[in-house]
Design a protein around this nucleic acid. Sequence first.
DNA 1: AATTCGGCCAACCGCACAATG
DNA 2: ACATTGTGCGGTTGGCCGAAT
Length: 353
Amino acid sequence: MGRAPCCDKAKVKKGPWSSEEDAKLKDYIQKYGTGGNWIALPQKIGLKRCGKSCRLRWLNYLRPNIKHGGFSEEEDNIICSLYISIGSRWSIIAAQLPGRTDNDIKNYWNTRLKKKLLGRRKQSQANKLFGSSHDPKDGNGMETLSNSAIERLQLHMQLQSLENPDFPHYDNPPMWPCKLNPIQEKMMQTLQLVNESSNPMMMQNFTPATPKKVDEYYAQSTNPLQQDYSPMSNMMMTGIESSMGINIPESSSSLVPESKGTTQPPSMELQQCWAFQAEIDELLSNKGAIPLEGQHMSTEFDCFKDMHGVKDSMTWWSNEFQANSTSWDSTGVLDHKQIDKKYNESVIGRNVQ
DNA sequence: AATTCGGCCAACCGCACAATG
DNA sequence: ACATTGTGCGGTTGGCCGAAT
């Protein structure tokens, strides 16, 4: 038995809002605020609408200083960067873009930005690999990998290739994230689950590395590419390492090793880590696939050419975002509530809880 | 000119969580 | 401690509109 509906659906109006309804709602809220109860609000002002519908209309359309459409390149970069980092947490992303609503950003991402970045070809390949045609009864666990995770993985790998264009990235060492936020941790746990079920042999032999082992890895590194401590790498988690259970000590994030150290081979954990990264990469890039008509393999990442200076901007933004966020799980929500509170206090002159 | 198709976006739905009694 | 209610959020849908055929 589910919870009772918030309103009588037979008696409320649905569909597009008329200008009269907009005016009623706007006038009332500008005069009296929301009163802290959206459910009761439509009755007070004689609107035959669900309270939730009123709230949505106000937040997404009638609220002052709302911007619609015309996303700037900087906003594109911010959205992309945050999506890769935290996924479809639209409210949090919206909180970082003044005047934008979560709904707007969500629509913009789903209809334009995603296509711009991923391109049709990779999308169709991903669908082929993980899409609805896949039989969930196969039991290989791939169905548990969400589209969001796939997209983020793809985006990240594309960015990684841009970082080191001369090297196929399955030959590259991992670029260590300095510290995962809880959301990133969760995503990596999901990826780990997928890997566990799709390749149990690999995980059987795996034991999580300790921070000490990671420090040893840094000391052992001989390849200049293994010294990647760019902010980009910190923000855009490779994820694979994390999914393998390797913990990155916080202190490592700001350390740039002076020497290259010894020539000892990397630890077993790291070799397994790279192998897993190569495996995922192989899976996603689907190297054996025949290019679609009119497309060439060399255009793999051409979609990113549309994003002028995306790397620099994203790096900058990543640092700013990290620096400004006191905590990951509350940032957006708090900001949103603060905005509403400020509006009620300053415009309406009311002190709302 | 008529029809089909696909992109876009506003709005709805249902779930999860927080607040309250 | 539990039940109820309100709010916030992300996913999805339906309809409009312009482009293509």
